[in-house]
Design a protein around this nucleic acid. Sequence first.
DNA 1: GATAATCGTTTCGGCCCCGGACTATTCTTG
DNA 2: CAAGAATAGTCCGGGGCCGAAACGATTATC
Lengths: 114, 114
Amino acid sequence: MGIELSTAKALQLWHDVSLHQVRDEEPDLSVRQLAILLTIYLEAPPHTVRGLAAKLRVTKPVITRALDSMGKLELVSRRRDEKDRRNVLVQRTVKGALYLERFADSVGRISSRV
Amino acid sequence: MGIELSTAKALQLWHDVSLHQVRDEEPDLSVRQLAILLTIYLEAPPHTVRGLAAKLRVTKPVITRALDSMGKLELVSRRRDEKDRRNVLVQRTVKGALYLERFADSVGRISSRV
DNA sequence: GATAATCGTTTCGGCCCCGGACTATTCTTG
DNA sequence: CAAGAATAGTCCGGGGCCGAAACGATTATC
């Protein structure tokens, strides 16, 4: 019921988007960072370090470091959970939403040409 | 005409594919490496270091290093151009073709669920 | 209240990538 | 044939990311 992307078109789309991403001097996110960012913005909160690590099947420091670097770019923010102060709640930001909006727009534009 | 990917579906597709890519510990390619690999396989040869660097708007060492690491994985190979021995011709390999085929298949499978 | 479990972070040594500058080789030009 | 241009590779100091392990803070268990 989905998009029905043929093999050739899938590769062409990935090629064009990757090229666009590499060329653009946007803050270059790694595959892992982008996966984390998209999970935070597309899946229902709350998001914790441990939960993200389990979902991506990576170790906790990977999440901590990615949140550090994306936090510097203000794409995400952190807040202590007051109910259980061991937890950190990862939160969305305006800049992060705009970043993904731009990204989705460029994918959409490119896909209409593939 | 193209694929007509809506903004929401574009993000969902990228999320699912990135997640799949991060989880599967396939030889982990960076965004740049994947862009180079796709360019080699989708655009018409010949491919030289200088040409790839210009197309991606990165420096030459980036291409050399990426070819080194992807060469170790046997995803691409290099050959001297006998017509002009200053040039190196980047060539496709069976493993590289299979790698991209698997990648495209997973994108196709995921897109049909988005 | 003492002990154990949980959570996020930090530390550690190692590895890879970055771009600018430089080198070696191979044409091209005059 | 000599001088310069073009090409790919290498070197260098800097920086980021990696997983395992140790750590401090907090909560749960008994």
